[in-house]
Simulated scan of single mutants.
Amino acid sequence: MKKKNKICTAIVSIILAILFISPFYLVLVNSFKTQKGIFSDVIGLPGESFTLNNYVEAFKHLDFIKSFTNSLLITVFSVVIIIIFTSMAAWMLVRTKSKVSTFIFLMFSASMLIPFQAVMLPLVAMAGKIHLLNPVGLVFMYLGFGTSLSVILYHGFIKSIPKEIEEAAAIDGCNKFQTFWIIVFPLLKPTTVTVSILNSMWIWNDFLLPQLVINRPEWQTIPLKMFYFFGEYSKRWNLALAGLVIAMIPIVVFYLAMQKYIIKGIVQGSVK
Rank of each mutant, 00 (worst) to 15 (best):
I21L: 15
A90L: 06
L93M: 08
A89Q: 06
A90F: 07
S67W: 03
V76G: 01
L132T: 10
P162C: 10
K36G: 12
F227K: 13
M226H: 03
F157H: 10
Y228F: 04
K2R: 13
K189D: 02
M92R: 04
M126Q: 13
I21A: 15
G47P: 00
R95A: 03
M201L: 14
P162Q: 09
K189E: 05
V12F: 13
N215C: 05
T96C: 09
I249F: 06
F185C: 14
Y261H: 13
K6Y: 14
I7R: 06
Y255F: 15
V42A: 09
P23F: 05
N70L: 08
V94C: 05
V100G: 02
F140E: 03
L143I: 10
F20E: 09
F185A: 15
E232W: 02
S98K: 11
G47A: 07
F59L: 15
V100C: 02
G156E: 07
K176Q: 04
L52I: 14
I263M: 11
L153D: 02
F254T: 04
Y55M: 06
I263Y: 12
F140P: 01
E166S: 11
E167D: 11
K272L: 12
L26E: 05
S40P: 00
S49D: 14
S13L: 13
S270K: 05
K272P: 01
F24G: 14
L113P: 00
S270L: 14
N199A: 01
K36P: 01
A10M: 11
W91G: 01
F64I: 14
S160M: 05
T69G: 08
Y255K: 06
R95V: 04
Q117H: 10
A169H: 04
V56S: 12
W91C: 07
